[in-house]
Simulated assay, not measured.
Amino acid sequence: MDAAPASRTPDRAAPHPHLVFALGALSAVAWGLTALYFASGRGRHDFLGYSKGQDFINVWTAGHMVLQGRPAQVFDPQAFLAATHALFDPKLPPHFWSYPPTALFATVPLGLTGYVAGYLLWSAAGLLALAWAGRRLFSGRLERWLLLASPAVAINLLMGQNGGLTAALWLGGAALLDRRPAAAGALFGLLTFKPQLGVLLPVALWAGRRYRTILAACASALLLAAASAAAFGPGSWQAFLTQTLPTQFSSMSVWQGPYQWFAPSVFMGARLAGLSSPLAFAAQLPFTLLGAVLVWRAWRRGGDPPTRAALLFVATFIATPQSSAYDMIPVAAAALVIARRSRGLADAILAALLWAAPWALLPLNALHAPAIPLVTVWAAVRLAQMSGEPQEPSAAAPTA
């Protein structure tokens, strides 16, 4: 049966003002760099020759291809690149589509827009979804605004990615878990369009005996998959399995340079350290097991729900070999949980490092010094400790 304590962050004293100032200063740097990025280049192109809002070109192109009646071709790397060149610029560097057919639903409205209007619509939708989830996860206004201003949000907007949407599903599901377990499961099921981010969700839900949520998540995921097959044709799934997945695996195992700079995983850190892909996967395995064990123990034991949720967010980035800086908005939420529960200087430093991680990742990985996994492991271990510590008395959180 499902437990029923409140899932929202308790109404305790806000994080220490000095720590709030540090987090705000780090955010200001990240947003300043983002503004410089958009001010650079010419027209719709950035200073590197890519489209501004770099990866947004993928969802925008996919939306146009779907409305042109070519959904299965989205999963063909050559056909997709040709469409990108035809729609945007023949000189644009290569891009490819990397998601299952379930992700195509979000692209359809973008097929009706120009590039700039579509980017603004996409970004606004992600921010609104994140604001909704943040309001339900955090009872304090300070944390809600800090989450929206986090460096992770800035880099997600710079990359034109879906981090706001995935974070909203993840954070919203965590916030609704105790009061509306079926709704939480429905949100988790929708997250399957980016399955690598849900790698530890089954561990957490099973350990926490959240059986209604598990059933709702399975139903939501199956309905979404069936709807995508009906809307885009079963050929889209065949193309995804035979063309997109091999391309995605190849990109993880072979590609070098900027592609690696955005990856906070142990797997990519091992590749940057010079290990072959098989050895990098071997290096990843014990960290995947570590993340699973920490989540299982914390969710089985019970304790503070927001801290357990924060542990799940951070441990996922330890456990999955495939993730990116723009996926790390839930890690920013975890940094805020650590900041609120900080017991001293070490916790404050940890919160600041975790907060800055999506941007610090880029220069560190570029220098072949992949240190961010050390931060996420430290954070996961500390959150596992915090989840079993007693909480100060708190006011009841209002219902969603």
Rank of each mutant, 00 (worst) to 15 (best):
residue 24 G to Y: 12
residue 36 L to D: 03
residue 54 Q to I: 14
residue 28 A to T: 08
residue 24 G to T: 13
residue 21 F to P: 11
residue 54 Q to H: 14
residue 31 W to I: 01
residue 37 Y to D: 01
residue 49 G to W: 01
residue 26 L to E: 04
residue 47 F to H: 14
residue 42 R to E: 10
residue 40 S to T: 00
residue 46 D to L: 07
residue 24 G to F: 15
residue 55 D to M: 13
residue 40 S to K: 02
residue 28 A to N: 10
residue 20 V to P: 14
residue 28 A to F: 01
residue 49 G to P: 14
residue 39 A to N: 09
residue 41 G to L: 01
residue 55 D to I: 09
residue 46 D to C: 07
residue 31 W to D: 00
residue 51 S to E: 13
residue 37 Y to Q: 00
residue 37 Y to A: 01
residue 29 V to L: 08
residue 46 D to W: 05
residue 53 G to C: 08
residue 25 A to D: 06
residue 49 G to F: 01
residue 31 W to L: 01
residue 26 L to M: 08
residue 21 F to W: 11
residue 47 F to S: 12
residue 21 F to G: 13
residue 40 S to P: 15
residue 40 S to D: 03
residue 30 A to Y: 11
residue 34 T to H: 04
residue 40 S to R: 00
residue 40 S to G: 09
residue 31 W to A: 00
residue 22 A to V: 07
residue 41 G to S: 03
residue 44 R to Q: 12
residue 36 L to I: 05
residue 43 G to M: 00
residue 39 A to I: 09
residue 53 G to S: 08
residue 26 L to F: 02
residue 35 A to P: 02
residue 51 S to T: 11
residue 42 R to L: 09
residue 40 S to A: 04
residue 30 A to W: 10
residue 31 W to M: 01
residue 41 G to A: 02
residue 34 T to C: 10
residue 28 A to K: 08
residue 45 H to M: 12
residue 49 G to Q: 07
residue 54 Q to V: 13
residue 32 G to F: 08
residue 49 G to L: 06
residue 27 S to G: 05
residue 52 K to Y: 00
residue 33 L to P: 07
residue 43 G to P: 09
residue 45 H to W: 07
residue 55 D to S: 10
residue 43 G to I: 00
residue 21 F to V: 14
residue 23 L to M: 08
residue 37 Y to N: 00
residue 28 A to W: 01
residue 52 K to P: 09
residue 55 D to K: 14
residue 31 W to G: 01
residue 38 F to D: 02
residue 29 V to W: 01
residue 20 V to E: 15
residue 49 G to C: 04
residue 38 F to V: 02
residue 40 S to V: 00
residue 50 Y to N: 12
residue 45 H to C: 15
residue 45 H to Y: 07
residue 45 H to V: 12
